[in-house]
Design a protein around this nucleic acid. Structure first.
Length: 204
DNA sequence: TATCCGATGACCT
DNA sequence: GGTCATCGGATAG
């Protein structure tokens, strides 16, 4: 459906992770689903931090020990969402990459809030600083209302949850990104597979 | 069936 | 910088 996204997701996963910086994550909430959103609301954020998880030589990847009920969507075709529960209480959103059957994905670690900030605040807790609304994979899922119910959805199928290309304004595309080790893992911890926008105030 | 532990976040000092 | 909440998947027995 989205040619640019399909093309991006054909890149090797680390390159795709870097290229997703600047893209927008969009979630259109059902009308009436939230008190603060009586007519339906569009939540949107600009991706500023990602991590790549690979199918080979990556023990930190959920796909490292094969396909299970939990990680099945990681093996779907590129563009699907892989959403999982971590530490029994937080959710994390991944964008599936690599051809169908190959378990690779990009973890979306942080976005810069663009639209629907009031609803994000209501879902994250009143008084949450703007900078903290979507800084961290669990926080952004909380702000966007993402759960296992969104696991396996396709992000370029015109549904409520989708990715949209960077806006055509100066600075919308990420000019420069920083590369470093991934966060919160113990296995394959040294691999340089974390990407964040240089200078962003909204990264972890 | 039991045990271990994680791609985290909130709150404390 | 440390602690803890909280739970389901993976693995071992």
């Amino acid at each position: 459906v989205n040619r640019a996204l399909a093309q991006l997701l054909r890149l090797p996963t680390p390159k795709a992770a870097a290229a997703l910086l600047g893209w927008r994550l969009v979630h259109e909430l059902d009308s009436g689903a939230h008190a603060a959103a009586p007519r339906g609301v569009r939540l949107a954020g600009r991706i500023v931090e990602t991590e790549a998880y690979l199918a080979v030589d990556d023990d930190a990847s959920h796909s490292a020990r094969g396909r299970t009920a939990r990680n099945a969507s990681m093996f779907l075709a590129p563009g699907h969402a892989y959403v999982y529960l971590i530490y029994g209480m937080h959710h994390c959103l991944n964008v599936v990459t690599a051809p169908e059957g190959v378990g690779e994905a990009v973890l979306v670690r942080a976005v810069e809030p663009l639209e629907g900030v009031e609803v994000m605040e209501s879902q994250r807790g009143a008084g949450t600083p703007l900078r903290d609304l979507c800084r961290g994979p669990g926080r952004l899922c909380s702000a966007f209302g993402l759960t296992r119910a969104h696991d396996g959805l396709h992000l370029a199928a015109g549904g409520a949850l989708r990715l949209e290309p960077p806006a055509r304004r100066v600075g919308a595309c990420v000019q420069e990104h920083l590369v470093g080790p991934r966060i919160g893992i113990t296995k394959s911890a040294a691999l340089p597979l974390r990407f964040r926008e240089a200078g962003s105030l909204f990264t972890t």
